[in-house]
Write a protein that binds this DNA or RNA. Structure first.
Lengths: 196, 196
DNA sequence: CTAATTGAACTGACCGGTCAGTTTGATTTA
DNA sequence: TAAATCAAACTGACCGGTCAGTTCAATTAG
């Protein structure tokens, strides 16, 4: 409870978080072992279990942490009074987030559409929230007018398409096209959505 | 090597293919065991190894099989003389394919962006080919004119965005929104791409 | 006859999880 | 001020279950 005791614990947790983040981002959580994570964090295996209880809980906390950061960043986009700029901010924030927390995108892409996943419920909730945010941004574009593409399609389906485009765009950048700048990706999504 | 021998072999292979397809599509290849696949195919475990050599090779053949079918279907879209209709056909064919072979989408989504994957090379090649097909369709839209959104953005990035939108759309349908028709999804992508 | 298949037992590597013991450093005691 | 105490933090050897892959004698089918 005192400050000094927390120093070691917090440090280990952070080291483990960081190690998990990069290892899982690169290779996926299935092929990363707890021993590897511990080694990469410069900590013993026991410490992982002391701090997190299980591999699944470690990943669960990783997801929850990532979700908090993501929504914090998305809010900034929603806050922008200009609908088009707000939309752009939202897309940019998403891609920046994926760059900063690569394992989040990896986990999402590999676990979201699997019923048996440990984190299926958390991820599904999260997905609904994100779709809701996108729909809000689309609604604002729609009421602003001048965006026929946005006005035409089923809002839920359109939001899913945008979500997919951004998610895969971000993941693709990380793995295959690191030379592709975030701006370039944002432009492609904006052009795609014909709201540029 | 003779015809009659192939009859039984092919039958077992098909049964195993079909079983793998649905099990992996539902739960992901990591959580599906060889014993389960054999049982679902109504075949002994030994037969799996007799016919495929290993789990990885079974999945590899699954991927190659799926790829063949996919490209066969995509060709139909590319063949359409009208660029817009061709684009629509391409998207429709992709979504129909994903519906018919759910594990393909599952494998893709969970393995494509992972360096350590057994099938990384195959999947990467495949991805390049698909991006190329999408770019061809986009080029035709561009030369046809009247699609400012398509003309504006970086072709490679735009193709990736479309790829992502369709992939996630299809997977989302399978898992979360089976009530959403393929037509509805196609409309959303077309509206998104502002080529409807 | 031969290729294909069966099924059941077996191997062994891998890996998540455990736990008895050790380290650390702040606090108390004499 | 130095020894004793304490609890949190940490260690790493070890355990046990799981599962891919093997083996093989027996069986079936063309």
């Amino acid at each position: 409870m005192t400050g000094r005791q927390r120093v070691r614990a917090t440090d280990s947790k952070h080291r483990l978080f960081a190690a998990s983040m990069s290892l899982i981002g690169e290779r996926g959580h299935h092929s990363v072992t707890v021993d590897e994570i511990a080694a990469a964090a410069g900590v013993s295996k026991g410490t992982v279990y002391y701090n997190f209880g299980s591999k699944a809980q470690l990943i669960g906390q990783l997801i929850r942490f990532g979700a908090d950061v993501l929504f914090e960043r998305l809010e900034a986009g929603v806050a922008n009074p200009d609908p088009v700029a707000g939309f752009r901010d939202m897309v940019t924030a998403s891609l920046e987030f994926m760059e900063a927390y690569p394992s989040f995108a990896q986990l999402w892409v590999s676990e979201q559409w699997q019923s048996r996943s440990e984190w299926a419920d958390t991820l599904e909730e999260l997905r609904e929230e994100i779709i809701a945010v996108i729909r809000t941004a689309l609604d604002r574009l729609r009421t602003a007018g001048g965006h026929p593409a946005v006005e035409r399609a089923d809002p839920a389906a359109l939001a899913t398409a945008i979500f997919g485009a951004v998610l895969i765009m971000g993941r693709d950048r990380q793995v295959f096209h690191p030379e592709r700048g975030i701006g370039q990706c944002v432009d492609a999504v904006m052009a795609f959505a014909a709201v540029g």
